[in-house]
Amino acid sequence: MSRQIPVLGARILDWFGFGPRDHAAHGHGHHDHVSGSHSHGVIDATIATTDRGIWAIKWSFVILALTAAMQMVVVALSGSVALLADAIHNIGDATTAIPLWIAFLLARRKPSPTFAYGLGRVEDLAGMIIVGIILFSAIVAGYQAIDRLINPRAVTHLGWLAAAGLVGFLGNEAVAVFRIRVGREINSAALVADGYHARTDGLTSLAVVLGAFGVWLGFALADPIVGLLITVAILGIVWQSARSVLTRMLDGIDPDVIGDIRHAAAHVPAARIVEAKARWIGHKLHANIAIAVEESLPVSEAKKITATLEHQLFEHMPALAAANIRLANADADHAHG
């Protein structure tokens, strides 16, 4: 796959066309998995390891920013708090790309005597900033909706309001199709999952249309009630994102990562894993592995086994940046990780 950034006009039909299914493009030998903790605003390693993945984040930002801008114009005209909540939701999703972008740029800096492991951890800091952005958007949206319930005001321009809800749906759907398409292209199951998240977000925009219809039927409180429902949805994203970010900050990983290590080691029968640990530093995976080999083996043979295992690990785990493999006593206990 070319790593050059393609021209938008030349690729637009390709992006939104019908491509191979999720697993059709997976290369031979790779054992991919999707972290169950992957969530909104927290970009998975398989996305950030390619220029194409970062490029997908950029265009998702552009689409959602334009969608939110158009919605805010209609908010000013109609006074709808439901649409305001949806626009805030889209603004929050769009602005999360900014701290991530900065984090990616810093993470690409070479290690220094002070930061021997590089600046990959800055992505965890970006994740906390993102959680704060989403939480702030939920508080603003909730406050506006509750205030409108207590102090009802007329909602006008219902036709424009419904149209803005549809724009929100179409914007999120465009991002969904885009992320799914690029995710399949770069073999990133996480980006595909993020695309389906964006598709779910589109349903909150359709709720704005439902609220406009309720107001048109004479139920004035339909608009703030929909605004509250969207606020609840945003709070759900806050919880999911905070859990994911804190897990990674505390060196938590998906158990499937250890499974991937053992799967790779199974291709090297002479090596028995005694201990397997791994953690993320930014969007790169670092593994520490202890293996047991026959004590009668010459040192040169043991080194060959270690090199073979290292090769298998990098072959099966694309996000792996470093594998520290050491020899352990042959009768050592099995790994607890």
Rank of each mutant, 00 (worst) to 15 (best):
L8G: 01
W239H: 09
T50D: 03
A76L: 13
A76E: 10
A266V: 03
P6N: 09
A65D: 09
A154R: 13
A68K: 03
V34N: 09
L285W: 05
R262D: 15
A198K: 01
G282P: 13
I54L: 14
D124A: 06
I225G: 05
G19I: 00
G183A: 04
L217C: 05
L149R: 11
L119N: 06
S37F: 13
V167Q: 02
D331L: 14
L125P: 00
I225F: 08
R199Y: 07
V73R: 08
A162Y: 01
I88L: 15
A176T: 05
L250T: 12
A10L: 06
R153I: 01
S300F: 11
A68D: 09
L106V: 14
L313A: 13
V182D: 04
L309T: 09
D44F: 00
G41F: 04
G227Y: 05
I146D: 05
A103L: 13
H28Q: 12
A330F: 14
A302Y: 07
A220R: 04
T247S: 14
R199D: 02
K277V: 13
W59A: 02
I139N: 09
A176L: 02
I57D: 10
A307T: 11
R272N: 12
L221C: 01
G17W: 10
P318L: 12
I130V: 14
A335Q: 12
L228V: 10
G132I: 09
G142Q: 09
I281D: 12
T156W: 08
F61A: 15
I54A: 05
V232C: 10
S2G: 07
H38K: 06
H30I: 14
G259M: 12
I281E: 14
A94H: 09
A138S: 15
R181V: 00
D86A: 15
F61H: 03
A141F: 05
R121G: 01
L100N: 14
H23D: 01
L309H: 10
A162L: 01
G29E: 01
A264L: 12
K284A: 11
V274M: 11
L119P: 00
V257G: 15
F169Q: 01
V293G: 09
V122R: 00
T96D: 06
R121I: 04
I91Q: 10
S78L: 02
A207V: 10
A193S: 13
N288G: 06
A292I: 11
I325M: 11
P99Q: 13
H263C: 07
S39M: 01
